[in-house]
Design a protein around this nucleic acid. Structure first.
Lengths: 340, 340
DNA sequence: TCCTGGCACTCGACTGTAACGAGTGCCAGT
DNA sequence: ACTGGCACTCGTTACAGTCGAGTGCCAGGA
């Protein structure tokens, strides 16, 4: 495909203008606002080629050009440099995150910060249990046949669950159970726990066996299977910026998608230790989000990744700025977590 | 104000028709769809009176009538009976709530259920700490100078917080602290804890005094002052039903308000042990929500109220149905909580 | 070969006019 | 006190016409 430097420059100019003005951009306006050194007619020829290749399109005849998803993709991959953050933004990040007292607080502050800085919808995944280790397991008697199981992970997450015991269990036994469970599981990565839980049952003294079996079931359910992941969301009001032009007039599908934890996790949840990810338009797998783009990255203390965070906005977004902000916030959050 | 029975019947008919059709209703359509026993001309006269009194208004000269906030208020107070739920709805409620394993689960299921049944935005307040009692306090050593403080309330809520100790504390001391704290606070209502925490410090053995002081500070902060309340939200996508006619075309202010926990708490948080509350249009105190109505009620095990729940929708909503649903869900949730 | 100015063309946006009709207020009659 | 009739209002829709931004193409020039 013959895309010489000037054609790429034209594409870049189109994307930048369209992102900032939100209006289809024509050849005349382009040469006025950018130093391309050629005439509108030449630009028109280039545009025709770009359109043929699928990077831009015309909403209707007699209108200017608009980038396609493919055009944004090329722009992000080859035509843009990540913008450095302004000092004001850096300061905002620090000021916002300083003083967080626990994990919940960190996550909430982060998601609000992201929404505010990018002026888009922000999503933060809580540190994934699958990537956490057990710090401590606590058993709190609620009644003679009920325990509250509380798990504290090294990432600061705390999960609890009520356990219905098969029969009354004296306080001393609870102490024993607590000791056994912690000896076996404390320090273990959550993904490694299932076999350990099994040996817990096998090795339990006979009188504790039934209780331990129940406990083991709940442990596996709570720690491994059930709603293992949590999500925080902020900035949905930002969806209404840009009138009804973005998202082709209906927020409905977007709002629906945002209510589905599974969807959000697939979008911003980190699987491999990747760098920043950008999903443009229908590159994501959800029909509801065809008109949206997602910028996400992993975060975690040091080099390890424990969760993902990112933002969602119209395909017509400021990618360089957004990418920079998402990365910076992830880095700060990582540092914050490393301190604990 | 001379509102005879027929005029009230006309108002009721207008509200019902407008709610179901979403279109201004005229005199002719009214007599066709309701057995009023009089002619359109008569209805027109009644309408003129109702309009003069501020219960209905005309969007423009040649359009039908639309209820005003005041009209809805009269309708809710005097013209409507709470609809009994359909058996299908009752079944839906039971099916939805059965099988919840912990408080988080109950709240999430409840808020989704409410959103689904009413087809509006649902809000559920977690059981208020102020109305809970301490069931157990757990201290988990994280390092020699750090503790994780975990509080379990009788409502099932679990709050945690990291405590930075003034100096290293041996494991035995942690055991002592745990015992002291629980002896003093377990069973106490959270609203009664501040003086108890003070005596904890006063009565602490000298060697534990500094640690206990730090702990006390965090206890007060966590349990009494800080983000004491939590909120769950669902069904924001329902705001887009009815096109852009509701909410005068812009979802923005609504979405902004929904992100403010403080706002939601004021709307659905229960203060006095009231019955169902209905706030219509600008009866609520927030400018952003002038175009919205809120139906809320308290819930809790047995007769006590531990939190609030409700829904938010356009002023043009099915009040009798919504009120019935909100009440029913609150009652079921209460029963569920009573079982724990 | 590549760029440029010129030109005809397209088509959405906007404006003005006219017909339509739902709905009203008023009044005279029962 | 209610009703039928009637003139009136005014938003909606349809249609025609103008305007102009923007395009594609072509012939001429560097």
């Amino acid at each position: 495909m013959g895309l010489d430097d000037r054609k790429l420059a034209v594409l870049r100019a189109i994307v930048e203008d369209y992102v900032s003005t939100q209006e289809p951009v024509g050849s005349k306006a382009l040469v006025e606002r950018h130093q391309l050194g050629v005439s509108p007619a030449t630009v028109r020829n280039d545009m025709a080629v770009l359109e043929e290749e699928g990077y831009i399109r015309q909403p209707h005849t007699s209108a200017g050009r608009v980038p396609t998803d493919r055009g944004y993709r090329l722009f992000v991959d080859r035509l843009s440099r990540v913008k450095p953050l302004s000092p004001a933004e850096r300061r905002a990040i620090e000021r916002f995150l300083v003083g967080a007292v626990d994990l919940d607080d960190v996550v909430h502050r982060t998601v609000r910060l992201l929404a505010q800085l990018t002026r888009q919808v922000a999503v933060v995944q809580y540190p994934s249990l699958a990537r956490s280790s057990v710090r401590h397991l606590e058993l709190v008697p609620i009644s003679t046949t009920r325990l509250m199981l509380v798990m504290i992970a090294d990432t600061g997450r705390v999960e609890q669950r009520l356990v219905e015991l098969p029969g009354p269990v004296p306080a001393d036994d609870v102490t024993d159970l607590r000791r056994l469970v912690n000896e076996k599981l404390a320090g273990a990565r959550l993904s490694d726990t299932p076999p350990l839980v099994q040996t817990l049952v096998d090795e339990a003294p006979p009188e504790l066996r039934p209780t331990m079996t129940t406990l083991a079931t709940v442990l596996l359910e709570t720690l491994v299977e059930r709603h293992e992941e949590r999500i925080a969301l902020a900035g949905t009001a930002n969806l209404t910026r840009g009138g009804l032009l973005d998202f082709q007039g209906s927020l409905r599908p977007i709002l629906e998608a945002l209510e589905e934890e599974v969807v959000l996790l697939k979008l911003i949840g980190e699987t491999e230790p990747s760098t920043t990810r950008v999903l443009i338009g229908d590159e994501n797998e959800f029909d509801n989000l065809r008109a949206a783009s997602v910028v996400s990255t992993g975060y975690g203390p040091g080099a390890t990744i424990v969760g993902g965070l990112g933002v969602l906005g119209p395909t017509r977004m400021d990618y360089p700025g957004t990418i920079a902000t998402v990365r910076a916030v992830a880095r700060y959050v990582g540092e914050l977590l490393a301190q604990n």
